[in-house]
Each structure stands twice: as C-alpha cells, then as structure tokens.
Nucleic acid binder design. Structure first.
Lengths: 191, 191
DNA sequence: TTCCAAAAATTGAGCGTTTACTCAAATTAT
DNA sequence: ATAATTTGAGTAAACGCTCAATTTTTGGAA
C-alpha cells in the first residue's frame, strides 16, 4: 500500500508539479481515501519526504553494483550507464528529481539529502577515475570525475526539458561521446 | 514598481519555493498590498510567468555580447564566462531557474520557454564551435558544443545544491578545466 | 506656475474555494 | 476478539482573487 501511494506521488508530481500536488490528488491517483495517506505518512511533507527517500535509495542501488566491475574503466562506464538505465531515468522520475531540486533552497531537508546523494555518487566516480589513473595516463583524475558527473547532470536537464525526443538512448550516447572526448586514448574501449 | 514586485518574487521563490510562494508572501516581500499584484499581473500565474520571462531575457542579454568576440575560441570562452557572471549566476537566480525547471512537466508554458532558451543558447555555442573547427582541428564541433553546454548545466546544479562553498569562482574554474580537457591543443589559451 | 479633473495606481476588507489535517465509525487482517 | 487499516464527513486556516473606496500621478487650461 505504501508503495502504491508513493507511486501515486510520483505520478502526481510529474503531472501537476509539487505546487499542484495535494492530498486529494495523490489519494485519487492511488485510488484510496485521503485519510489513509495521513495514517501512513503523517503529513503531506512526510509523504513527499518518503517519496524522495525512496527515489534516492533506488538510485543508489542502481549505481552501486557498478563498483563491482573488474576494471576502473568498466566501473566508470557502468556508473555512467546506471544514470541512463531505463528503470532509473524515466520521464516521471526525472520530473521528481527536478521537482525536489527546485525546492531545495526552501527545504533544507531536501537539500541535505540531495547533496549527500550527489556527494556519495561523486566519491564513487572519483575513486574509479583515480584507479584508472594508475593504469593509464590521466592528467587529473579528480577533475575528470567532476567533469563526468557534471556532464551527466546536465544531460539529465536536457532530457527533462526536451522530452521524449532526447531520451535515455540519446543521453547515454552523448555521455559516451563525451567520455571519448575526455579520454581519447581509450576511445575505442568506450561503447 | 513592476520590477520591485518581480524582485520580491525572486526573493520569495528562493526562500520558500514555488509551492510556498503566495500572493501574501510576495506582497509582504515587496512592501505592497496584495491588490497591486493582481492589478499589475492579473493572476498569480501571470506573476510567475513575468518573473520567468524577465529571467530568460536577462540571461539572453548576458550571453549575446559573447558573439561579438573576434575569435571562435574567444566566443566560446565568453559564452562560458557569461554563465558564471556574478550578475547572472546568483544563488537566488539559480533557485529561480531550478524552481521553474522543477515545474516544467506540469506547466507546458515553462517548458516551452525553458526549451527555447536552451536551444537558442546551444545554437550560439554550436556556431562558435563550428567556426573553431575551421581554424584548428576539432573532431566533432557539434558534439563539442553539446558537451560544453551540458557540462555547464551540470555545474549550475552543483552550485545550486552545494551552496556558497561552490560558487561562481569555483564553477567557472571547473568549466575552464573541462574546456582544457576537451581542447588539449588550446589548453594554454584557456584561462 | 497654479489649478484641477481625469486617469492610474494602491489599499484592505471581504468572498468563495481549496487546503492539510482530524476523528469517530466501519472494515479488514491477525 | 483484538489490532491494524481504511473511510469520508467535517473543520479551521490559508488560498487566489474581487471590488468599492482612497490616494497618487498626470497633463492641459488659466
């Protein structure tokens, strides 16, 4: 039931934005009464908080297995691929990410969670890039990691704004092109 | 007066988010009555629309002069610098950008304006990169332009989330580092 | 410059609606 | 039977917006 309600939150936020998301909307989308939302999540803020926590957990579980790749380049590629996985990078979930990012300056709790998520993910990318630097020549592995992560975030914005015409397929391809530009010596290992 | 009210919208959205922005909040921030907001902007939606239009206009006017630079690399650098200009890239204005981006899936008008703004800016970057490709060897100028723009967007997200510790100074430096990684042959012309 | 009437701008009380949330009662699960 | 869950009517507060009344600004005639 909780999952069904949180799914309804995602649908509602994607369709009406956080400012248009009400208990009545979410209840209707979930096919339950308003009271059950309060019973499970206490307040509207609690409802949105749990939706955000679930989004962040899901994202973390999606990219963590990338660290199990045997080679540093494999880890980097798997981390990038995770960001464009069709189960992670859906239109609705992108809407949710940006909806929360749009409220971070007003809701310190969102900001804290979002920052920690970004930081945790960056540390993984940084370590993969530093490991890569021990096998091949990479001038500044930390800056490389920052560039890859920032570029991926920017692609998420483009997917979010441009809609279906720029989806996970195009996004992943752009990310791989970018990696080849950054790592010309490894270009033919990136595909 | 209209400018004062729109300034108050920026302050209010940055402080309370779009979902917490009410006519009463904005009126209080502007030091006027609620009626004057309706008199000038008709509805709350009209108020937010005008704030977004002003943000986009201001942004366009900030990067357009970059095209007057004599060299392609100069244009690219000026375009990048414009994104981190202290008058453009303030914490409050970043909050406004992300607040609107967070509502684009619910408000087609926001999506249209934001997409057009991104596209217009991308065309400028693309032409600068294509011009650069005629003077020095650049493998894929269009993809280079996409990479630069996406990376810049990602840096805006990092500035938005991380706060003062990652401001325009650090953002611009990261963007320049990224450019040097993408254009190693021109690295010592990028500063 | 002075005046004044028309226009523009501003006020704030008020209205109908929507909001988040409560709670006693009913239903379902253990 | 006991506990957990769900319902839906109900409430107080907040919301966007209206509007008659008031103040300020404007611009041409004396």
């Amino acid at each position: 039931m909780q999952a069904r309600i949180l799914d309804a939150v995602v649908d509602t936020v994607a369709e009406k934005g956080i400012s248009g998301t009400t208990l009545a909307n979410v209840a209707a989308a979930a096919g339950v009464s308003q009271g059950v939302l309060v019973f499970h999540f206490k307040t509207k803020a609690g409802l949105l908080n749990e939706a955000l926590l679930r989004l962040l957990d899901e994202y973390r579980e999606a990219w963590r297995p990338a660290l199990a790749e045997p080679t540093p380049l494999g880890q980097i590629l798997a981390l990038v691929r995770a960001d464009f996985d069709p189960s992670i990078c859906t239109r609705k979930k992108l809407s949710l990410w940006f909806a929360f990012w749009g409220e971070t300056s007003a809701k310190p709790f969102y900001n804290q969670l979002a920052s920690e998520s970004e930081e945790e993910r960056f540390q993984a990318m940084k370590q993969a890039c530093e490991a890569l630097a021990k096998t091949v020549h990479v001038p500044q592995p930390v800056l490389l990691a920052q560039s890859i992560d920032a570029h991926t975030d920017g692609l998420w914005l483009q997917m979010h704004l441009q809609g279906p015409e720029f989806g996970v397929r195009e996004g992943l391809e752009a990310a791989l092109v970018h990696l080849r530009l950054l790592l010309p010596d490894l270009a033919n290992s990136i595909s």
